[in-house]
Simulated assay, not measured.
Amino acid sequence: MRRTPARRPTMKDIARRAGVSESAVSFALNDRPGVSAATRDRVRRVAEELGWQPSTAARALSGEGSATVGLVLARPARTLGVESFFLQLVSGVQEALAVRRLGLLFQVVEDLDAECAVYRRWWAERRVDGLLVVDPRDDDPRPALLDGLGLPAVVIGALDGVGEGPHGAISNLWADDTGGMASIVGHLYDLGHRRIVHIAGLPELAHTRRRIDSLRTEADRRALPDVVSVTTDYSDAQGAAATRRVLAAAHPPTAIVYDNDVMAVAGLAVAAERDVSVPRQLSIVAWDDSVLCRNTHPALTALARDTAGFGRRAAEQLIALLDGGPARRVRDVAPRLAARKSTAPPPLPHPARPEDVPDSPARRSE
């Protein structure tokens, strides 16, 4: 059963709790003369207790809304400047919002708790009419929070129960991560690769888990014991460090799958640093295609999709909710694998020379 959305505290609530008139509340909160210092302090204390925040738009004071959509990213800021996925996603979002003259309020925070705090503040301040929510997690607290606040939202990325369950004002737009990983493993397996490493993103994200699970399922189905996943923060630094570790192993992989383009390009640089030829000795696949993937040497095999279109469709789903439409769970177009020069059959084992085999005629004749 859907809970009743929380109600924002008003000046009337503050006046009732503080035992003063609404005009006195207005004077106190706007630091205008007309009330005593004691009354001013009491009003401000009550406002803080109730969680009251001033509206940031005159239209919101009249109940018309702020004509703004919010987007918060709880990601390390250093990973966003060079990653093309979010830039393309936001460009698609903005394209759809511009048609309806809706603004986009964007903020980067450190973690999930900070993200939830931003949502509460935006709700109290009437800053946004709806939200786009990215990076779903298992046991994600955000749908219940937004449902309780009564904020319409679209979760971008698969999250069980959203768009068809109890969250009546939250839609879900998702792409098939499981199928995407299956297509990558199939491509590498058909080329002859048996030792595959997946350098993944943040372990707490639901799509990271689905990719890891899909990799393990595909490996088990093909009886491949030497297939593993290594998690990172999506940055080029951690992608490069993970690449160095796996290439230094006693039995290094013949293929590496990276969860974004930035790490894949960093991995290509590490291979060059270690004189590992791509693709003759090592094949590389990037999860999201980009101009980076297409302009390296060799060009990187990548999982391609219309990321800007994905963002545009997410914004259109949110606009439909704002227009009073029902919550929906929509599966987006499946990504496709664009095979390029960074993948090829693995190197053949070096045949043993007769003189290296203890019981060979060449050794016995010595």
Results as ranks from 00 to 15, higher is better:
163 G>Y: 12
154 V>D: 02
185 V>M: 11
169 A>Q: 13
185 V>Y: 01
187 H>T: 02
150 G>I: 08
182 A>H: 13
146 L>K: 03
190 D>K: 03
195 R>P: 01
155 V>S: 09
179 G>F: 04
158 A>G: 03
173 L>G: 13
198 H>C: 14
193 H>N: 05
178 T>P: 00
180 G>R: 04
146 L>E: 05
176 D>Q: 13
180 G>Q: 11
151 L>S: 10
174 W>C: 08
174 W>K: 08
160 D>P: 13
187 H>Q: 03
166 P>W: 04
192 G>S: 08
180 G>K: 01
199 I>L: 07
157 G>W: 01
157 G>C: 10
150 G>S: 09
176 D>R: 11
155 V>F: 09
177 D>L: 10
163 G>T: 13
184 I>A: 13
164 E>H: 10
150 G>R: 05
153 A>K: 00
169 A>C: 09
199 I>V: 14
184 I>G: 01
199 I>S: 02
173 L>V: 11
171 S>L: 11
198 H>W: 15
191 L>G: 10
199 I>D: 00
170 I>L: 09
182 A>W: 00
180 G>T: 13
151 L>E: 14
198 H>V: 15
150 G>C: 06
197 V>P: 00
166 P>T: 13
170 I>T: 08
159 L>P: 06
149 L>Y: 06
188 L>M: 01
189 Y>V: 15
177 D>W: 08
189 Y>A: 14
165 G>N: 08
162 V>I: 08
175 A>L: 08
194 R>K: 12
162 V>G: 03
